[in-house]
């Protein structure tokens, strides 16, 4: 039987072989006896259950599963400090995107503008409460929770510590997963503007610029592998 194969690909697709001896996994100490703070020697692909030996990753490298091709882990180029700075920027931009009007429509000298909350409020009044709740959760509550939770975790992670509530927050962040949809809303705003432009004067408001900034930040964050925080921090995790 062959041992778990390490299969690391640097970002452009050239496989860079890991010279790993066969059957090495047999010599490992029982995984449940692992010191929680030590770096785990093994990695299980969450998409196909294949066991891999963990290899060191250089900045920007991505480890892919040899069986199914899913991403096992990625090494982000940014440290906790840089991520915290980005999160704080995201908070500022998010507050602006939420409070400021997004666009103004004009017709015969009459002008109407709308903020995110106007959007949610009108849907609630217009018998589409389901949509109002969905929008409030995915565009306001969840993104805000994500920003605060990440900010809190990173504040401590800067010095390699675990924030109070680390364990619960990490689990909560995992479950938030795809339920933050600000980037979809930005595209939606774009489509709305094009549609409205047929009949009305469209004037961009500061909110749309804030959303554009938020979209950039979300893209930057898409490449961040948060599970690494488990390995990069030490200490109590109540």
């Amino acid at each position: 039987m062959e041992g778990a194969r390490q299969h690391i690909k640097p970002t452009p697709h050239r496989p860079r072989g890991g010279g790993i001896c066969e059957n090495q996994w047999m010599d490992l100490s029982p995984p449940d006896a692992l010191d929680e703070t030590a770096t785990q020697p093994l990695l299980i692909c969450e998409h196909c259950d294949t066991v891999h030996r963990r290899g060191p990753l250089a900045k920007g490298e991505v480890a892919e599963c040899a069986r199914c091709g899913a991403v096992l882990e990625r090494c982000r180029g940014m440290g906790a400090n840089a991520l915290l700075a980005l999160i704080l920027t995201a908070l500022v931009v998010f507050v602006q995107a939420t409070l400021w009007p997004i666009v103004t429509l004009g017709l015969n000298g009459q002008y109407v503008d709308a903020t995110l909350w106007d959007v949610i409020h009108t849907m609630w009044l217009d018998h589409s409460q389901v949509v109002a709740v969905l929008a409030a959760l995915t565009l306001f509550v969840f993104p805000l929770c994500k920003i605060f939770m990440l900010g809190w975790l990173l504040l401590y992670a800067r010095s390699g510590r675990r924030a109070p509530g680390f364990r619960r927050l990490m689990v909560a962040l995992h479950h938030l997963g795809p339920w933050t949809m600000s980037e979809v809303f930005v595209l939606g705003a774009l489509v709305s503007i094009v549609k409205a432009h047929l009949y009305f004067d469209v004037l961009p408001d500061p909110g749309i610029y804030a959303y554009a900034g938020l979209m950039l930040l979300i893209t930057l964050f898409a490449g961040v592998d948060l599970t690494r925080l488990w390995d990069e921090t030490r200490g109590e995790s109540p």
Binding site: L105, L107, V119, A132, V184
Partner: peptide
């Protein structure tokens, strides 16, 4: 989201 935004904006 498109429907929600247009509903909030087009109120003439």
């Amino acid at each position: 989201f498109v429907v929600a935004l247009l509903t909030a904006l087009v109120r003439f």
